Amino acid sequence: MDRFESLAERRIREAMERGDFDDLPLAGQPLDFSDVDDPQWWIKRWMEREQIDTAALAPMVIQLRREADGFPDALRRFDREDDVRAYLEDYNHRVKQDRVESRFSRESRIIAPVVDVEVTVVRWRELG
């Protein structure tokens, strides 16, 4: 043992002697450093590995607009008109809540549309 071996080096050597690094997944494969110039590379890789939906990270108004863009097709999952109405009323409530909350922020004034529940229910019926 080298007299000047650091604590970290000693622990690594001891772990190697115990076989702690044997049979690790991806052993012998090159490391991927293709994106390390991006300061957020680690979080992007983590989100991809954990299969985190990045759409959920968008501001609420953007999420609401995307949701409205899916009407009426996104409503196909419902079998009952009462469920469609309840869902659309909840959507409108969330839009109105977002408008109240964003009124006090400095962000740009993007707004999500309130949907006409009756018109959208009719369009949903036509899908069925």
Rank of each mutant, 00 (worst) to 15 (best):
S108N: 11
E9I: 00
R18A: 14
R125E: 02
N92E: 07
E50L: 13
F71I: 04
K96Q: 12
R65Q: 11
P59T: 01
R66P: 03
V61Q: 01
L24G: 04
Q40N: 15
S6N: 07
W124R: 00
W42M: 14
E48F: 08
R109C: 08
R80H: 11
P30F: 05
E81W: 04
R10N: 10
E126S: 07
S102T: 07
D83N: 06
F104R: 08
R11Q: 13
G70F: 03
Q63L: 07
R65K: 11
L64Y: 08
V84L: 05
F71T: 00
D73M: 10
R80W: 08
L57C: 03
V61F: 09
L57F: 07
W124E: 04
D53R: 02
V36T: 14
P72K: 06
L57N: 03
A74H: 03
A8D: 12
L7W: 11
A86H: 06
I111D: 14
A112I: 05
M1S: 12
S102H: 11
P39A: 08
K44M: 10
G19K: 05
G128N: 12
G128L: 10
A56C: 07
E118S: 10
Q40C: 11
I111F: 12
R18C: 05
S102R: 15
F4M: 09
R65A: 05
D73F: 10
I52F: 09
T120W: 03
E89Y: 07
Q40F: 15
G128Y: 08
S102I: 04
E67M: 10
R11W: 11
F33V: 10
Y87E: 14
V121Q: 04
Q51N: 15
D20I: 02
G19S: 02
D35P: 03
P113L: 02
Q29F: 12
F104L: 06
I43G: 08
R85I: 02
W41S: 13
